[in-house]
Write a protein that binds this DNA or RNA. Structure first.
Length: 269
DNA sequence: AATGTTCGCAACCGCTTCCGG
DNA sequence: GCCGGAAGCGGTTGCGAACAT
């Protein structure tokens, strides 16, 4: 996608006709990408604050980091989200809520921004079409009687229409819905309670030996599970997440229609 | 063909968390 | 323990492209 030059794009000036060195904003140009890539190659990631100056870029460090993380990193995977990736995103979102970076961490080559965008533009609509609240994974109010009906409510119907996907088969959800994520905690506390209750339906019985096995270290550190929550090391938590990938595909949750409708045929960046 | 609408995604913003002094 | 700077994260914005009328 081509984009307008910085100042034009966002209305925020890179103007400033002063002595002051002004920062450029908006879309990155190829030569800027080149400068950034070279700088990271020689100096490594980190020290984003000072990197742009050393690289000869008129960008803030924040912008450089974002560009590198979401676009320039060599290990980034291009192309449409595959069915198994989508399955995993759904599973992880049920568990973790909108913790995109954590979710992205389990999808090699995918960025948090990409997953967030995919969720907002595709998956949340699919859930709504199924009469499921994408935020809580619980039935939408109007759809409570038959949450998986094709005609659950107007919102679902509208979403189906908007989604341009064929109707989904009526399938009982594989998993028991977790409680809503914490809305008041934008950067992470959304996990609150999700882990424990999600385990009921997530085939997590295999983790019985771990107590509350899904108290990831950061979650435990935030105290969201209280004192009873054992702190599980990264490896344990990681192995749990890995196990999600090996479960029967969550696609039953939606019906396996993706390949047929070509919905994921969006090109890469 | 022209115009309006919707969609997908890159980039920005503001807040939170981390870390060193 | 406190403070300030740096890094990280999630929500939101706004543009161009694609599609519909």
């Amino acid at each position: 996608m081509t984009r307008k030059p910085a100042a034009q794009q966002r209305g925020v000036a890179s103007a400033g006709a002063g002595v002051m060195r002004t920062l450029k904003r908006g879309a990155w140009r190829p030569e800027e990408d080149e400068l950034l890539s070279r700088a990271v190659a020689t100096e490594g990631e980190g020290r984003w604050r000072t990197l742009p100056r050393r690289a000869g870029l008129l960008r803030c460090g924040k912008s450089c980091r974002l560009r590198w993380m979401n676009y320039l990193r060599p290990d980034i995977k291009r192309g449409p989200i595959a069915a198994d990736e989508e399955d995993l995103i759904l599973r992880l979102h049920r568990l973790l809520g909108n913790r995109w970076s954590l979710i992205a961490g389990r999808l090699p080559g995918r960025t948090d921004n990409e997953i967030k965008n995919y969720w907002n533009s595709h998956l949340s609509k699919k859930l709504i079409a199924r009469g499921i609240d994408p935020r809580t994974h619980t039935p939408l109010p109007g759809a409570a009687a038959s949450p998986y009906s094709h005609h659950a409510d107007a919102a679902a119907a509208a979403a189906v229409s908007a989604d341009k996907t064929p109707p989904l088969p009526e399938v009982e959800p594989q998993f028991a819905p977790p409680p809503p994520a914490h809305p008041s905690s934008p950067s992470g506390a959304g996990v609150v309670g999700d882990f424990a209750s999600s385990m009921v339906g997530l085939g997590a019985e295999g983790f019985d030996g771990l107590g509350d096995p899904f108290c990831a270290p950061d979650v435990a550190a935030r105290g969201v599970f209280g004192l009873d929550c054992p702190i599980v090391d990264d490896a344990t938590f990681s192995s749990f997440l890995d196990s999600l990938m090996n479960e029967e595909r969550i696609v039953d949750y939606f019906g396996d229609h993706k390949d047929a409708d070509g919905e994921n045929d969006q090109g890469g960046a």
